[in-house]
């Protein structure tokens, strides 16, 4: 399958970026969303997001339910089609750097009764690198054990995944992403439905990734922990409300705009766009 590539609809912009990179005045940002708009079934759910994450850090994407946080992650990973805009990594399209970008989906998106063991799931993190026909070998197996050790699950390595607690399942997903040995990690609600002990453990692993110089982008819903955990955040509510260092962004004014903002307006317009009609 050809990997979906996202050509910029704004050709004038690309050479400009390349020039900057060539001049060496600054490295291209790790992740850059440029004017990203996403629609499901013709209905826009995320409008014109410009978001640049220049350097590795712990980055939180915060917003209410239905704000398009998960959609923003998926748009960067080629999992949802973009109406327009681009998402680039180190100035390059995803197809060129796919192996360096890891993804942890929401835990509820898979069937945990699926007949695989914990180690099987973690090994999946190495499949992208192995290609079509190569099987995981001893290097992959020892890497999987290392990753399980890192998330504190070495004792349940051979267990069927359905016999784990919610927090353990989330850590299995995290271990799978670690096994990919990526430079950028996208995590979709890794703390949802997870006990406090697992949360601490997951956060510890994420902080470790940051200290290794990797970028960790986390979709998160809990404002109390967000302030403590993230270096930088973006507030999203169908559009980018604000982004920057956590303390500067999580202001009462920004939060009010995020959690009681222009949603109704954007939703109404979105429905009209989907129906090819006009708003009242």
């Amino acid at each position: 399958m050809p990997t979906p590539t996202r050509q910029s609809r704004l050709p004038g912009r690309l050479p400009q970026e390349a020039d900057v990179a060539d001049a060496g005045s600054s490295a291209p940002p790790v992740v850059e969303f440029h004017d990203v708009t996403v629609a499901y079934g013709g209905r826009p759910v995320l409008w014109n997001v410009d978001l640049t994450i220049a350097e590795p850090c712990l980055f939180g994407i915060i917003g209410p339910n239905g704000a398009g946080k998960s959609t923003l992650l998926k748009s960067a990973l080629g999992l949802v089609p973009l109406v327009h805009g681009t998402a680039r990594f180190w100035g390059r399209p995803l197809a060129e750097v796919r192996g360096r970008v890891g993804y942890v989906p929401q835990r509820e998106t898979v069937d945990w009764d699926f007949p695989v063991s914990v180690t099987d799931v973690v090994l999946m993190g190495t499949y992208g690198r192995l290609g079509w026909f190569r099987r995981p070998g001893s290097r992959e197996r020892s890497l999987a054990r290392e990753c399980l050790d890192r998330v504190g699950l070495i004792d349940v390595a051979d267990r069927q995944i359905g016999r784990l607690s919610g927090g353990q399942q989330q850590r299995v997903f995290l271990a799978r992403a670690l096994a990919q040995e990526a430079d950028v990690y996208f995590l979709d609600e890794p703390m949802a439905g997870v006990d406090a002990r697992s949360q601490e453990q997951i956060f510890g692993v994420l902080a470790g990734l940051r200290s290794e110089g990797r970028l960790v982008v986390v979709v998160h819903h809990d404002l109390r922990t967000a302030a403590a955990w993230f270096d930088r955040v973006a507030l999203i509510d169908m559009r980018l409300v604000a982004t920057g260092p956590t303390a500067e962004v999580l202001t009462p004014d920004n939060l009010r705009r995020t959690y009681a903002g222009q949603v109704d307006l954007l939703q109404e317009i979105g429905q009209a766009v989907a129906a090819r009609g006009r708003t009242p």
């Binding site: 990973l77 999992l79 993804y103 942890v104 069937d111 695989v116 999946m124 499949y127």
Partner: peptide
């Protein structure tokens, strides 16, 4: 079969 989204993100066709 287990996780189509993660597979696609990892470059599995």
């Amino acid at each position: 079969a287990f996780d189509a989204d993660a597979a696609r993100a990892a470059g599995v066709p």
